[in-house]
Amino acid sequence: MNQFVFCTGQYASGDWESAPLVPANLIDSIARYTSIDVAATGVSVPLDSPRLFEHPLVFLTGHLPFRLTGAERANVRLFTDRGGMIFIDDHNHDVGGIFHKTATEEIARTWSPIVRLPNNHPLYDSFFNFDDGPPATSHELNGWGDNLIHPYLGAVVRDGRISVLYSNKDYSSEWNYHPENKKFSSVDNTRFGVNIIVYALTS
């Protein structure tokens, strides 16, 4: 059980399974770059399940409205109270998009409004160094979505630690490919995913 198991959170609304290749890709990167004992396959756990507490880092994504049920909201709030961390990525890459609007509302309702995470936060140095903050995604650069490069990530920070990390950069699309295809990239674009996982495990 001391293995790190990548966990995707299932929520009742929306399309939580919209980036099915992200877990395998990040697991591959963790195994490739670190000595962290990582399980070969990830798991999907409903947000209202007690099993959520077996996986202190949970990944959430989607395109559609993001609404939590009362049971989900209570469970994830307790989850973060205990020290768990949730990474939410907007699969739309669109500040006017429905996922962004509903997710930011839901975060504010469940925890507190997200704040801008400074680009010198330890998250950006937890393994690889990202001196300019969160790396831009190809979807930001090619004009899709809102045609903006979002220079910051949002977060809910408690006691100096990130409880909820929110991205509007569409890492879900950026990392949603088979790990074998990394060999065609000059720079592995999942490296920032390694930072998120190492940060969750060490901070």
Binding site: N2, F4, T34, S35, I36, D37, P56, G83, V198, A200, L201, T202, S203
Partner: peptide
Amino acid sequence: SAGWESKF
């Protein structure tokens, strides 16, 4: 080593 035991 990095892991949940050391973190918590």
